[in-house]
Nucleic acid binder design. Structure first.
Lengths: 143, 143
DNA sequence: GTCCTGCTTCAAGTCGGCTTGAGGTCAAGT
DNA sequence: ACTTGACCTCAAGCCGACTTGAAGCAGGAC
């Protein structure tokens, strides 16, 4: 296998993830190095895929803790298929909310009403109970 | 008009937004009270719609600053139709990313591969350049 | 032998969006 | 007169995800 060992500098170069972040991820248990050469971390190239996975999940709004739960330590077997499915459902709900938001924004951009608040379509949105109540339940996404 | 004046307690009761948040929003220029009765803020009921608008936008991932820019102070006329359209496009891109993420999650939940990292479909995601590069450009959403 | 480079640790700082707490004001009720 | 309750201000704290900075080690080039 071409599963070479690489130093942190190489990981940074090939993943674009800063060393400080790599150390932080390691501390959080998201990645780990095979061993140390002196003090210096030595990684396997598989860490690059793990990092890509983390990046994808982050960009979909999952927290580091959630990622940790979804994909067992170092992206492995995972007893979490149910959880993945649940997360997919969550995403689905989010997507629907965002889609309606997008439509409303487009409408607002085109609508000639003097104030967005007076536009009938916005009134509709604002009165939609599923957005007014939760405060967070929607479980959105974060940077 | 039934545009009654109400106290902060009433706003809290009817919007569900805590007083501390209302004061914070006022400080940030997102809402404002018509006047003071002594020290106490007096709001118009329209603030309730403004708050609903803010809630919707927040739940779609916009920051308070963005909301401020999109809907001029107190949700008014706004010279920002172009910006609203731009935001809609942003949302559209986000939605597409989330949708593909959702599909991948569903696949991962069903896929029998021992490690998600070994699953061919995940390999595909991880190698998709548009997710690996940006680090943030996607401009996702936040709680 | 000492300088540079690349790595290390650990503590503290940053940012957004609030919340919390101490201490103060003010009108109404008893 | 005094307490209660609703409101106020201002400063500080919190969380997640990092970044930054100071201070140190390890190995090679000169």
């Amino acid at each position: 296998m071409d599963n070479v060992e690489i130093g942190i500098g190489e990981v940074v170069r090939r993943s674009g993830v800063p060393a400080s972040t790599l150390r932080y991820y390691e501390e959080r248990g998201l990645i780990s190095c095979v061993r140390r050469r002196g003090l210096a971390r030595v990684f396997e190239t598989t860490v690059l895929e793990q990092l890509a996975l983390i990046a994808v999940c982050r960009s979909a709004g999952f927290s580091l803790d959630e990622i940790l739960l979804m994909f067992a330590p170092d992206g492995r077997p995972s007893p979490n298929r149910a959880m993945l499915a649940a997360k997919a459902d969550e995403l689905d709900a989010t997507i629907r909310r965002l889609a309606s938001m997008r439509d409303d924004l487009r409408h607002a951009a085109a609508c000639p009403a003097p104030s967005h608040l007076e536009c009938p379509s916005f009134q509709r949105v604002l009165n939609a109970p599923d957005l007014r109540r939760d405060g967070d339940g929607g479980g959105l996404v974060g940077r």
